[in-house]
Amino acid sequence: MGRALGVLIWLLTIGSVWLFVNGRWWLPPYISEHGPAYDRQFLITIIVVGISFVAAQVGLGIAVWRYGSRGDRRERAVYSHGNNRLEIVWTAITALIFITLGLMGQRVWAQLHLNEAPAGATKVHVVAQQFQWNFHYPGADKTFGRTDPALVKDAELNFVGLDEQDANAKDDQVVTTLAVPVGRPIELTLQSKDVTHDLFVPELRYKQDVVPGMAIKMHFTLTKEGRFELACAELCGQLHYKMKSYLIALPANVYDELVALPQAQFQGRITQLIKEYPMGIKQGAATTAAR
């Protein structure tokens, strides 16, 4: 029995490891500047953790393989209550490894969260609602028009409650797709009209809750052109699983042309871009090298 269990533990370990290393499934390709650093930290962590996992399982397997009772009533196990020196050694080693890992694991975070977006970053306001994403662009004047929850009229497509009277609002555009330029820092301001949502683009390596009552800022820089699925990753109700949109990463000049368009043509252009950009990283496009 002991041997069978030992072998089973090893087989399960091999199977588990295989799922991770077979190359068929892994993180989606990255498109942002912090992507490579993220992927590196992820890989290092998985390796460290994987080694501990395998070591522990192999050890467990060896123990059950080797130390089975033979059913002889005279036999005695080793009489030991432990070993203080061993305890100290393994405590110190694990503490060292885990805390190092922990400190390394703050780098990407600190880079994204402890810094403000650089001045002149491209700004877009994100307004989430059950079950739709709205993206509010400031238009040619680069100034956002006033918004007010009281002015929201979904039927008239005023999803964000834009104040038409406000001079700054005249050239603002609101669409349900996020189009942003590659190679420039981007700052999104996230707001929600109703419940908590979460903006998630796998390729972006970023999740951020969109909390009602707060205006949360996130910033990043894209390095690859293409079109990517944008999902909601915080339970927001019945159709949470359908709250989908796209992130279109455009060359800077295309983006500049886009945001110069008035609202009337804006939507049409976005539809066109969605067609132009098949899903994924745009092949053959010049990508801004990420360091």
Binding site: G2, A63, Y67, E75, V78, G82, L86, E87, T94, G102
Partner: peptide
């Protein structure tokens, strides 16, 4: 991450308990 340390201690001690045992399965 530091909470992993006492958890690992427990794991090691379980392995230590099995080491040199006469296990009845």
């Amino acid at each position: 991450l530091s909470i992993g340390v006492p958890s690992a201690i427990k794991t090691f001690n379980w392995l230590g308990t099995l080491w040199g045992a006469k296990i009845r399965f």
